[in-house]
Every structure is written in C-alpha cells, then in structure tokens.
Design a protein around this nucleic acid. Structure first.
Lengths: 214, 214
DNA sequence: CTAATTTAAAATGTATACATTTTTTGTCAA
DNA sequence: TTGACAAAAAATGTATACATTTTAAATTAG
C-alpha cells in the first residue's frame, strides 16, 4: 500500500490514542524520523490531517495536535443537527430495501461485538448513519457530513467514557430503522434530532466536567 | 511569496477563466513544465485545489477540471440556505458597529466600481456576507461556509452572465444591512433566505438553459 | 483482423540534496 | 540583569534523481 496512506492511518490513530497528546507540536523532520519515511510523505499527510481537523497550524513551523473543548463539541453538535436531519429527509424518499438491510446488518454486527475498541465502535456507528444518508444523492452534503464526522470522531475516546450510553444509542438506532421501514419519515427525523442532541449533550457535559476539574 | 501560494492562485484563476476548460486532465508533469516549477509544488497545489473542489480525481493519474451542472448548483444553494441564515442569526447577537461599518464600506466600494471583473465582484460580495457571519463565533460553521463559497465561486463566470442581477443584489445587501442595524434579526433572516434563493434560481435556470442547448 | 500479451513510454511515489526561512542560542553593550 | 543584535541551529520550501506504478503502444498468436 502507499506509504502516504499508511502513515495517514497510523498517525491519526496515534493522535486518537493520545500517543501524541493534545498540544504536542509535530514537525516534518520529527515525524519523518520517527516513522521512517521521507519528509515528502509527511508533508502530504500533515496537509491531509490539517484539512481533516486532526492537526492545526502552529505558527510558521510545525503542526499542533488540537485539544478538546466543550464549546467545540457543542458547535459540532449544532452543525450535525442542521445537516443530518436534512440528509435523512432527502434520502428517505429514495431509500432502497437493500440499504435498510445493510444498515440492519451493521446494527447486528455492533450488537454482537460488545468489546469493540472505542474508535471502532464509533466508526461503525457512523457507517450506520452514513448508509441512511447515502441515498440523498447530494454529494456536497455527504462530503460535509463526512468532514463533520471526522471532527466528531476525534472525541470518540471521550464519548466512550460515557459508556452507559452505548445501549441507549443502539436502541435508538434500531427504532430509527423501524420508522424508516414503515416510511414514517417525520418521526424518524424527530428521533434523529433527539439522538444527536442526546449524544451531544452527554459529550458536552463530560467535557465541561473535565474542564472544570482541570 | 511562496511559489506554492502563487501557483495556487494562478492555477485557480486560470481554471476560472477557462484557460483550462472543464474536462481537461492536468498531470503533475504538465503543470510543472507549464508553470516552471517543480512537481513538488504542483502536488501541494493540486491537493489543495482538490479539497477546494477546483479539481477532481481522474482515475489513478492526473486531475480533471470539473464541469458545471444545474443539479450541483441547486445543491450548493440548498446548503447555503441551511447554514447561512443560521450563521446570521447567531452572529446578529454579537455584531459590533465596526463590523456593520466594514460591511457598509464594502458595499460602497462595490457600488463605486461598476466595472469589476466577475471574479472580483464575486469575491467582494462574499466578503460582505462573510463579515455578517463573522461574529457568530463558530469556527467550524465559518469553515464550512468558506468551503461552500469556494464551490459556488467556480460558477461566478456564469453568474455574471446574469448581469442584470447585480443591481438587485446590491439593493438587497443594503437592505440587509439596514435591518441588522435596527436589530431586526427576524426580517434580516427572511431577506437573506430570499436573497440566496433568488441568486440560486437565476444560476440554476441559466445552467439548465445551457445544458438544454448543448 | 481481433484480442491478448509484451514492451516502451509516461506519470506518480519517494528519497536525497540544496536553498531559504524561521527559531533558537549566545554574546555584548547599556 | 536586560534587551538588542549576530551567529548558529533547526525547520520548511524547492529541485533533482531514482523507483514504482500506470497507461499507451506495439507485437504476435489465433
């Protein structure tokens, strides 16, 4: 596989697992040496992670691992609320049974694997949402949603701390699917709003607690 | 200035002016040779333009200049409608008089320069909108809006063909500003929706006509 | 002639080397 | 001690060179 792709995945995971904790400044040279590749590769990856929100500029040299904040989480939640229900509504009209089936398979898989790593569970959950939105046939909207998810997924380590929520979330996912099967787009939309709001609030509260304690 | 930055601007402008018309496939080598820089620089720029929507992947080699479509324009309009009124509403609360002044200066400047190049006028118009949204204090939202504008600005060459609209647009901008000065956020929001919708419809109709004629 | 396979050409990925900019360090004068 | 300035170190920008992959062309078997 391309070294670029490899490094992209590896570095992203290392940031998520806080191998490089928030605030760390990563230079091209440092990363090139540490991961045993040339700076060219590092440059490409840094740029990609920058536009994905996994790194942020740091003066004129180096990039910094971003931190976490309740207000940022709040904003991401707001944006999800603004775009995801729209995507669902648009998608509902064209949704195929095979897609509903795919979504159901995912839920089953998640349910069957109770001991997934946080980031894996998060990724699968997003795939579930993503399938529901897929058939809205709005490439730009889907791109924005993917970007948003990227940002949110930085927080997955935290979200998982609110582990108790996993069951609630799964139940709501299932209910969402049922509503869509029955063509009740209206209710599905409302449930989605609740779903996103709940997850957002939990995350925000957790972050506020941590910020207070710091 | 950095060659990277220079090439970024130059290539973008050349695409906008259809020096490289839609459908053209641009390879690293080709661009490097044509613009007299190394492929390294070209790579960076291609990547940047890719994530800005000014180039799109083309198989495993080269990048392609994207075309124009009425449905894409429609989608972009939809997304603007979903996000910009929100930004305005959030910003209205914290808007300072100096910002309103800035916006007014921009309008005056645009009015005073009737013979601006299409892309310049488009850029200034966006700056006007941007100032109004600025104080919403939601970095991610603003980032999404900037991205959206990037996409829309690809169409500016077309938009300008609907030149008659320039006056209407300016009048609405002025009215928007008045409403904001008086703190009438509600009406300002409604006007903004109308404003975006009108511009969108004009563009979409123009594109549909062209597509039909093709 | 067609289609499959091999060979050549072209394009991209990656590394190294050099140039330029930025940051840090250290020195000296006030 | 402090602050400005100069020198050194480090980091990034850019070009060239080589490796690998991809695309196109040419050749040959059927």
């Amino acid at each position: 596989m391309l070294k670029k792709q490899q490094l992209y995945n590896q570095l992203k995971k290392h940031i998520q697992l806080q191998h490089w904790p928030p605030g760390t400044v990563l230079t091209q040279q440092q990363l090139a040496e540490h991961y045993g590749v040339s700076r060219i590769v590092v440059r490409d990856v840094q740029q990609a992670l920058l536009s994905d929100g996994w790194l942020e500029p740091h003066g004129k040299a180096g990039m910094q691992v971003p931190g976490f904040s309740a207000t940022e989480a709040q904003e991401l939640c707001l944006l999800r609320l603004q775009l995801e229900p729209l995507a669902l509504q648009l998608a509902a009209a064209n949704m195929s049974f095979s897609q509903l089936g795919q979504a159901e398979d995912l839920l089953a898989y998640i349910a069957a694997h109770k001991h997934l790593a946080p980031y894996q569970r998060g990724e699968l959950n997003w795939q579930f949402h993503r399938i529901l939105y897929q058939s809205c046939a709005k490439p730009h909207l889907l791109r924005l949603l993917d970007q948003l998810h990227q940002q949110v997924s930085r927080y997955l380590g935290y979200q998982e701390q609110a582990l108790a929520y996993a069951d609630t979330s799964a139940a709501e996912h299932a209910e969402l699917l049922t509503l869509l099967r029955h063509g009740d787009t209206e209710q599905a939309g409302k449930l989605l709003v609740r779903h996103i709001t709940e997850a957002g609030n939990l995350l925000v509260q957790l972050l506020q607690k941590q910020q207070g304690a710091r």
